[in-house]
Amino acid sequence: MLSQPKRENNTSFWNERRGRMFSRKGGWIIGEAVYNHGYSMLDELAGHVSFFQVLSLNTVGRLVERRFADWLEALFICLSWPDSRVWCNQTGSLAGTMQVSPVAGVCAGILSSDSRMYGPGCMTAACDFIINALRQTGCGSSAEEIVGLCSMASPDTPPKVAGYARPVATGDERIDAMVRVGEMLGVTTGKHLVLAGEIEKFMKARWGETMNLAGYSAAVFADHGFSSQETYRLLSCWVNSGIHACYAEAADQPPESFFPLHCEDIDYQGKAARPVPACERS
């Protein structure tokens, strides 16, 4: 390797931060208050606004209207399925059956939901898609042309469009529920959701696939000015309630009684038995 002339590194950026923490969010001044984005948390937030308003404030720095926070809460309810077959929930059940602490079990389940297929893990793709799609319509692209830019495994299979189609089932009953909640609360929607509907019409006619809850909610978040990253962060714990249910049910039963497997329930397809060769060392 060629030797390089030694030169002193410029570490001023880190020197300014060494031994100190800086926050634009807030903090605790002992004996005075807990400040949160300009509010005294215990005087002005606790008891005055909802948890989901504070979640939005802490996550994206904006105290959203109560009705939007209530819509967000309903969105969390829509992912609160107490069904252990759902992958992240099953993680909670498996943690429960091994008598893991509830915090670890629910955290493990939430981590499982950081998926490219469903849950919060697919939200950046869904948000990026609809935000970029609206920009493309500004350049004259149609819904069909926008979908045509998405990757296809073959001409006979539906393209992978973030926010459309879902595993296991077609259609998404949660959208009806959220539309109803939005109308009841007076949550406005805009161009992103209109376009999402146009794309759905094309997807349904051409491929029989519909929008999923991620696609619907991504469009509503975009209509309300949330970026992809902000939406992803807001929904990090989206599935937590369903995992709680599955964890608790399994944890309350004898250990290892949730969905036990015989040895033969695993289909081994690997190499046949063979002797271990003696170790040679280099």
């Binding site: 923490m21 926050s23 634009r24 969010k25 001044i29 400040y35």
Partner: peptide, 10 residues
């Protein structure tokens, strides 16, 4: 050493 930005305080 915990520096809260002025706009985050009351």
């Amino acid at each position: 050493h915990y520096v809260i930005a002025a706009e985050a305080r009351k």
